[in-house]
Design a protein around this nucleic acid. Structure first.
Lengths: 207, 207
DNA sequence: CGTCTCATGTAAGGAGTTACATGATTTA
DNA sequence: TAAATCATGTAACTCCTTACATGAGACG
């Protein structure tokens, strides 16, 4: 149930509406956790029912409405308890490496776009993480507001650690993709020297 | 639907029973994909119904039974099509970094066991990946059997790439955990110089 | 004869995705 | 006034987990 704790963590910097939280997932928080709109709204209602949040109906213009959620004392306790509890590591499911494991059922031409897409994917993630890191180095995060100055060092240190970790892992994935392209190129060299099975069969059959 | 493709990939090295596939997930394949028993048996039935597999009831002893599955032509086509299709990257959900992001709601004493557990977790994964890599370097994988010698280079190259990638990412996670311990130690130094809020409050309150 | 491993299944529920649905406000 | 953005919801479905359930074969 980490969605719940991600939401508690975000709301611990101040009251927000579901829509704000959704945007937050598309931005800074999105680098470590994702959630869709269809997940967020019901979960907020459930959390309210469980006494972790309180909601205040706010007006938008004349007829519009908006529910502003705040973390309760019980909600903060829940967040703290979760942070202290051991990390629940999910079972490993790695679609990229699963696919590469079985690349031999395809051709070398299929391998190249795969690795290129991998590099592109993690290049985007790398940029995102680097921007976040830059914001943190400038002390630009909403998490610092409403907190004692003496806590700022700790907040920035751990948030920076997270961003650095993401930079490192994205960099590693990009390097891995490049290595994949190298290997593919090397295999292609080999293929030219030794004609493929299909080619040999065709030669044997024809003429 | 990657479970389906993981199963097709495993069965593409030869016919197997559900139990063998389950074991396979606990060993070599487990480094890139996980699946439980409760998922595997029904999925195999579904795949059979969809014409991707055929099953042969085999006897075990006198009364025991066993369903041996083989990939059909349609199954191999499905596997190839999936390998050629773009990777479906799942949304990012990183429980470790989510938690570290909110470490400031806890105390420094809570941080240490968290990073130590992280290091232990990825040390185990690293060992697993290194063993797999060693097996591959020795040419020890069932995937080579039933395949032309000229394909062996490609199979070993890509499986090796996968194992190397896992080694690299586990190594990076271990380094990240150590960095977390360093940061925690450094913050602890700082705290000793500047007494914490709670301590100051206690001092102010008491005489 | 008891325990471990082999072998296969089902049922209930949690988490997440995709798609559908609605309506107000702001901006061009 | 049309389009984009703000704002909140629901329904159906897929995937996965946890737990329950059963029984045969192998080994000591």
């Amino acid at each position: 149930m980490s969605l719940r704790h991600a939401l508690l963590g975000m709301l611990s910097i101040g009251p927000m509406a579901g829509y704000d939280l959704l945007e937050h997932f598309h931005k800074s928080a999105g680098i470590v956790w994702s959630a869709s709109q269809a997940q967020i709204y019901p979960e907020l209602r459930d959390m309210e029912a469980d006494g972790l949040l309180t909601a205040k109906e706010a007006k938008r213009g004349v007829h519009g409405r908006k529910r502003i959620y705040s973390v309760t004392r019980k909600g903060m306790d829940e967040l703290r308890t979760w942070v202290q509890a051991p990390i629940n590591y999910p079972p490993l499911r790695d679609p990229a490496r699963l696919k590469v494991n079985y690349l031999d059922v395809a051709t070398l031409d299929d391998a190249e776009p795969l690795f290129k897409a991998h590099i592109a994917h993690y290049t985007a993630r790398l940029q995102f993480a680097e921007e976040q890191l830059k914001r943190l180095r400038a002390g630009d995060t909403r998490r610092l507001a409403r907190r004692d100055a003496e806590d700022h060092e700790m907040i920035l240190a751990y948030m920076g650690l997270v961003a650095e970790g993401l930079v490192a892992s994205a960099t590693a994935e990009i390097a891995w993709g490049k290595r994949g392209l190298e290997i593919t190129a090397r295999l292609r060299e080999g293929k030219r020297a030794v004609p493929a099975r299909a080619v040999r069969r065709a030669k044997a059959a024809g003429a």
